[in-house]
Amino acid sequence: MVELNAHTVVFAIFSIITLGGAVGVVWNRNLVSSSYWLIFSLFGVAGLFVLLSAPFLAAVQVLVYIGAVGILITFSVMLTRGMTQIKDVFNRQSAASGVVAVLLFVVLLVGVVLPVWGPSGALSSAPASDVVATTAELGVALVDGSQYVLPFELVSLLLTAALLGAIVIARDQDK
């Protein structure tokens, strides 16, 4: 059902990186290691983006997530250093949570993904076209008056507001 070619192998590698990193995030006791695993996992996602012909998003993924969010999380971990070694990593509902997560995965897989897009699914699982929009077109689309300029401007406003808000919230009130 799946040919074993270079593409598939690369996909497998990045999938393993992504999921393995994610598991590392969840299971690690030490939050510093967790954050490194997170960066690892996000790097895998960037690889998947490349496979999906979205090199720009992959670059943004590396810059924003690995470069900015990862560092931010690492810093936060260090700023709350008293908490890196807490004894109980999981709370009391961890077992129930595990069951629910697995059930969720099964429902998604059996109930949605496989019946619709699977090998014998209702919809084709192959690419509709090999003509892929380029990064230049993405750039135009984001600032084109008839396409995404309004969401683009709104989201930049949101980002500004969030950054200001973050500063206000995190500022030491005593000083």
């Binding site: 799946v2 593409h7 598939t8 996909f11 999938s15 992504t18 999921l19 994610a22 598991v23 995030v25 969840v26 939050l31 996992s41 996602v45 998947l48 496979l51 999906l52 908490m83 807490i86 109980d88 990593v89 999981f90 709370n91 509902q93 961890s94 949570s97 595990g98 629910v100 997560a101 697995v102 969720l104 995965f105 998604l108 897989l109 993904v113 496989l114 897009w117 699977g118 090998p119 699914g121 699982s125 192959a126 690419p127």
Partner: peptide, 26 residues
């Protein structure tokens, strides 16, 4: 690679994330 495999990876990642959100204390 067929689409469903990407969806599979995404679903798995989502569930792992969900588990982290539901069960971690930190």
């Amino acid at each position: 690679v067929p689409l469903w495999m990407f969806l599979l990876v995404a679903a798995a990642l989502f569930c792992i994330g969900t588990f982290a959100v539901l069960s971690r204390r930190n």
